[in-house]
């Protein structure tokens, strides 16, 4: 059954509706150091999906009893602006944003040398300003650059992109129609130096073999993203 607003096909003549190839991600641009008030920040666009990330801290933990005398903690708040979606999105935390904030913090924590920052909180805030699928992956990519920009000691950056399936075809970096009407979505966060996965979620339906293929596709894309993150950080301090 074709739902209202649903395109008849997601893949036409071997191309996706926005003209991309199956393993092609949308254009990515990253700029570090966009919020001077924050210790570190980054603005990132992934096609039409746009996010801004800021890092405050290490700073005193509030409430105090959450402080760990042996190491720092990472707090993550993902929010979506009310104008970021076709229908006005009610401001404030939703169940969805609370979950994404949680898995984002867990995706970023493994690369941060938290033992250097006892009793403190490193607070990561990400605002999605324009949403066209892939907001959590965009948010993680931006947050990782913002953390590095903040001069936080880390052992790696974190890269993130989704794989998925539409019209039976495995694809990289879903945009809205593919996210809404495709068969599966598999967002991943990948640590480029160690090759480990620090965020993994999935919905839809995939065979284990398809998951294996997607992970390969995602890994390759994440290595590309890593280069862009590095460039953004270097650009920030490049000689003018």
């Amino acid at each position: 059954m074709v739902k209202k607003g649903q395109p008849e096909k997601l893949i036409v003549k071997g191309k996706r509706l926005d003209g991309r190839g199956f393993d092609q991600m949308r254009d990515v641009s990253i700029k570090a150091g966009v919020i001077p008030e924050a210790e570190g920040s980054a603005e990132l666009s992934l096609g039409e999906t746009k996010v801004i990330a800021a890092v405050y801290g290490p700073r005193e933990v509030i409430p105090k009893h959450l402080a760990n005398p042996e190491k720092g903690i990472i707090k993550c708040v993902y929010t979506m602006a009310s104008f970021a979606t076709p229908d006005r999105n009610r401001p404030g935390p939703s169940r969805r944003s609370v979950e994404i904030s949680k898995v984002m913090a867990e995706a970023l924590t493994p690369v941060v040398n938290l033992e250097k920052y006892p009793k403190t909180s490193i607070d990561v805030f990400v605002e999605v300003t324009n949403a066209n699928a892939g907001t959590r992956t965009a948010a993680i990519n931006a947050a990782s650059v913002a953390l590095a920009d903040a001069g936080i000691e880390m052992n790696d950056l974190v890269t993130s992109i989704a794989g998925g399936k539409a019209d039976g075809q495995l694809i990289l970096d879903l945009f809205n129609p593919e996210d809404n009407y495709g068969e599966a979505d598999l967002p991943i966060a990948y640590l480029p130096r160690t090759g480990e996965v620090s965020l993994l979620q999935m919905d839809g339906e995939l065979t284990p073999a398809e998951i294996e293929k997607l992970l390969k596709m995602i890994k390759k894309a994440c290595e590309e993203l890593y280069k862009k993150q590095k460039n953004a950080l270097r650009e920030r301090y490049k000689l003018k």
Partner: peptide, 8 residues
């Protein structure tokens, strides 16, 4: 045997 949801 198909996977329909995952969460790390």
């Amino acid at each position: 045997g198909n996977v329909c949801a995952m969460q790390k």
